[in-house]
C-alpha cells in the first residue's frame, strides 16, 4: 500500500520535530528566550525545506522525496561521502581526545554506530538493486 503522506512534507516535519526537541533542550538549559530562538530557526528551516522541496532541481527532488534512479544514486554517493567525513572526524576526534586525556566515549560511540550501520546496511541491501 502506498503512503498518502506527501513526501514534500517529510523534511519540514523532521525540521519541526527536531527543532522542537532542540528548542526544548535549549529552553531548559538557557531559558525561554534561547528556546524560542531555536524554535523560530526551526520553523524558518521547515518553510525553507518546503519551498526547496518543490523546486525543479536534483536537491529539490531529494528534499521533496521524489527522486528518480539517478538522483537516488547521487543521494547515495553524497551520503557515502558524508559518512566518510563523519568517520574521519570521529577518528581525529578520538585521537585528540586520547592525547588530551579527555572523554573518548562520544567518538567511540560515533565510530561504533557507523561500523554497525555499515554491516547492517550490507546485510539489508545485499540482494537489492542499486537503483
Amino acid at each position: 500500500m502506498k503512503s498518502s503522506w506527501p513526501g514534500r512534507l517529510t523534511a519540514p516535519a523532521i525540521a519541526v520535530i527536531g527543532g522542537a526537541g532542540l528548542a526544548l533542550a535549549d529552553g531548559i538549559a538557557y531559558g525561554r528566550t534561547a528556546g524560542l530562538s531555536v524554535a523560530v530557526v526551526a520553523v524558518v528551516a521547515a518553510i525553507g525545506y518546503y519551498i526547496w522541496g518543490g523546486r525543479d532541481s536534483d536537491t529539490g527532488a531529494m528534499i521533496g522525496r521524489q527522486v528518480d534512479e539517478r538522483q537516488r544514486l547521487l543521494r547515495m554517493r553524497a551520503q557515502s561521502l558524508a559518512l566518510l567525513a563523519g568517520t574521519v572526524v570521529g577518528l581525529v576526534g578520538y585521537m585528540v581526545a586520547v592525547a588530551r586525556k579527555d572523554t573518548v566515549w562520544p567518538f567511540v560511540l560515533i565510530l561504533g554506530v557507523e561500523a554497525v550501520a555499515f554491516v547492517v546496511g550490507r546485510a539489508i541491501y545485499a540482494d537489492r538493486d542499486a537503483a
Binding site: D56, D58, A61, V67, D68, E69, R70, Q71
Partner: peptide, 10 residues
C-alpha cells in the same frame, strides 16, 4: 519516462 528533466539532460 517517469524521471526528472535533469536526468534526461544527463
Amino acid at each position: 519516462l517517469g524521471v526528472s528533466r535533469q536526468t534526461v539532460i544527463s
